[in-house]
């Protein structure tokens, strides 16, 4: 049990474990003892092997803080919200909604209809578009990071690699090389060719969205292949300039489908 502000947080189980920490299921009560609901809590607990001369524990904490700051900046129905956090502690944490499942498992289940998939795709694009409007790049879009919540609600999560397009960090010397050496960056299958070289722009997220479209297996829907092909063009110049353009394309696909 842990008191934070007006709430008492009670861990009830571990949902997942990784090198950077764990996600717990927590029950939250107010100080009067009333149950407020079940949530997920992400706790930073970095594996000792990831702490060294290049990346210190403080660096990891800063990165976690950045994740919370950026995610909290995106108040949107298709982005997982952060409700409570505690960053100035040995193992920083934040509380977010408890997901039912993720898109990867949904795809594997084979239960999604074409309409379901198109609705999910739209939600995903709307969420990423919102991030880009906030000058944020996700940099690790993949079905595992698209979470499903009650009411067929899908939201983008895991802001661990999010970066601000305004910062000069992109030009920092060898930041990519060192980061990759030490911690690994992104997920290769979803990384645009330039992202593998350390270059990120909104079109690197467009590429990842194209790969996700491919995984949704909607080739038989007219216009989808064209959309996927354009989004995953080898050269960024050949891709959609913005996620808004993808939304426009999807709108035309949906219109054609209805008629």
């Amino acid at each position: 049990m842990e008191l934070r502000g007006n709430y008492i947080i009670k861990p009830v189980g571990v949902i997942g474990n990784g090198a950077f920490g764990r996600v717990e299921k927590v029950d939250i009560f107010n100080t009067a003892g009333f149950f407020s609901g079940s949530y997920a809590r992400k706790v930073l607990a970095v594996d000792a092997r990831l702490i060294g001369e290049l990346v210190s524990l403080e660096d990891w904490k800063e990165r976690f803080e950045r994740e919370v700051r950026y995610q909290a900046r995106c108040t949107h129905s298709n982005i997982v919200p952060i409700y409570i956090h505690h960053l100035k502690t040995e193992n920083p944490w934040f509380v977010m909604d408890l997901a039912e499942t993720d898109l990867r498992k949904e795809i594997w289940s084979g239960l999604l209809s074409d309409d379901d998939k198109l609705i999910i795709l739209k939600k995903l694009l709307v969420g990423v578009n919102h991030m880009h409007e906030k000058n944020l790049l996700h940099r690790d879009l993949k079905p595992e990071n698209i979470l499903k919540f009650p009411g067929e609600n899908y939201k983008i999560s895991d802001f661990g690699l999010v970066k601000n397009t305004d910062t000069a960090a992109q030009s920092a010397f060898l930041s990519h090389v060192l980061a990759e050496k030490e911690i690994g960056m992104g997920t290769p299958d979803y990384m645009a060719p330039e992202a593998k070289k350390g270059k990120y722009t909104p079109r690197t997220d467009v590429y990842a969205l194209g790969v996700i479209i491919n995984e949704l297996n909607l080739s038989h829907v007219k216009g989808i292949d064209e959309m996927e092909e354009k989004a995953t063009s080898y050269r960024p110049a050949g891709r959609y300039e913005s996620v808004q353009q993808m939304l426009d394309k999807l709108a035309s696909i949906l219109t054609r489908r209805k008629s």
Partner: peptide, 17 residues
């Protein structure tokens, strides 16, 4: 992946590999 012209408007020119 990029042409020289395209890169001229992007940062990271001095990022060493």
């Amino acid at each position: 992946i990029y042409t020289k012209k395209e890169l001229s408007s992007l940062d990271g020119k001095n990022t060493l590999t």
